[in-house]
């Protein structure tokens, strides 16, 4: 990205990214009356015929996106994460089973949607879309990685789910992102414990590693921005080289990145694991950072979990 901001919401990458993609690819963007919020609507001015709105009707949008894809287009759908879930069976039946080239960019993911409260906060979307065969599932750590993901999604065949956020989060990839689907990015080396994170928890994981280093604990930080397919080689390497793992995510712990990592490690190399995430509850209204605080999705939450994992080695 040019003019990398110090902080930005990952959703801000969508519209500009699609504009760039439309210049080189046959994409069609479909929308369910949230194109301004997701920023996807940016494409409408330059390519009006390639932006199709279906109104507040996510089920129709999902199946129609699949139909458009059968005629040779890459189709990009966007809405809020909770409304993407609204049409689960349409994503399953119309898109996943026939393995069609439809990308779903879901903005306002996680609890950092903030003031709108529990109904607008997707605590389960990664689990929901990771459950679908053929879907690639990604969560960018910042706006730079999100920009790279838009390009990668358009350039790689098949259904994708990408969770974007509303909150302005610090930019990590100030020197650019080398995002490759299915490849984790080790942001900090360390031999004592590994912190695996995605989304806005990656920045917090880096801060936690800094905090731990003051006590002489060297934590490895891995940005696992592709949830499916999981980069098991980076995961197994972390387990064997550091012997303890913390997974940090803005999602229910029982169905997200942590659960998938635990499943992979259980049969390969079980090491002590700790999980920083949402514990079987919904969110509530508040400033986005207040809600993260309430749920324990904090720097201290991660560093405490790292110490617990270490003590179990």
């Amino acid at each position: 990205m040019s003019n990398t901001p110090d902080e930005a919401a990952t959703r801000e990458a969508l519209g500009p990214g699609l504009l760039k993609a439309a210049d080189r690819s046959e994409i069609v963007v479909v929308d369910a009356d949230l194109g301004k919020s997701t920023t996807a609507r940016l494409i409408a001015d330059q390519y009006p015929e390639r932006f199709i709105t279906f109104g507040i009707a996510e089920q129709n949008m999902a199946s129609a996106a699949a139909g458009i894809a059968t005629t040779g287009f890459t189709v990009v759908a966007s809405t809020f994460a909770v409304f993407a879930e609204h049409a689960f069976d349409q994503w399953r039946m119309s898109v996943a089973q026939p393995n069609l080239d439809v990308k779903l960019f879901a903005s306002h993911g996680g609890v950092s949607t903030g003031e709108d409260g529990a109904s607008a906060q997707s605590v389960e979307d990664i689990g929901v879309f990771s459950s679908l065969v053929n879907f690639t599932v990604c969560v960018p750590a910042d706006v730079v990685e999100a920009d790279a993901m838009v390009a990668a999604a358009v350039d790689n065949y098949g259904p994708w789910y990408v969770r974007l956020g509303r909150a302005k989060v610090p930019t990590i990839y100030t020197n650019g992102s080398s995002f490759k689907v299915g490849q984790a990015d080790t942001l900090r080396e360390g031999e004592d414990v590994s912190i695996i994170a995605c989304g806005l928890m990656v920045d917090r994981a880096l801060q936690a590693a800094e905090l731990l280093s003051k006590d002489g604990i060297q934590a490895r930080v891995i940005n696992m921005s592709t949830i499916r397919p999981l980069d098991t080689s980076a995961l197994f390497k972390a387990a064997s080289e550091t012997g303890a793992i913390v997974v940090a995510e803005e999602h229910l712990v029982h169905s997200g990145l942590g659960a998938l990592c635990a499943q992979a490690l259980a049969s390969e190399n079980p090491v002590p694991m700790e999980f920083v995430g949402i514990q079987n509850r919904y969110g509530e209204s508040g400033k986005w950072f207040e809600i993260l605080e309430l749920l324990g999705l904090t720097v201290e939450g991660i560093s405490d979990a790292a110490r617990r994992a270490l003590s179990r080695k």
């Binding site: 069609v28 015929e49 390639r50 199709i52 089920q59 129709n60 999902a62 199946s63 129609a64 996106a65 699949a66 139909g67 458009i68 894809a69 059968t70 005629t71 040779g72 287009f73 069976d89 349409q90 399953r92 039946m93 119309s94 089973q97 026939p98």
Partner: peptide
């Protein structure tokens, strides 16, 4: 066989999408 079905009510949306795509083509 041009579509996957079984869960009811999706075919008209799918066909609508196909027509929109064909029109663009």
């Amino acid at each position: 066989v041009e579509n996957s079905a079984g869960s009811l009510g999706m075919g008209l949306s799918f066909g609508l999408g196909q027509r929109l795509g064909l029109h663009l083509k």
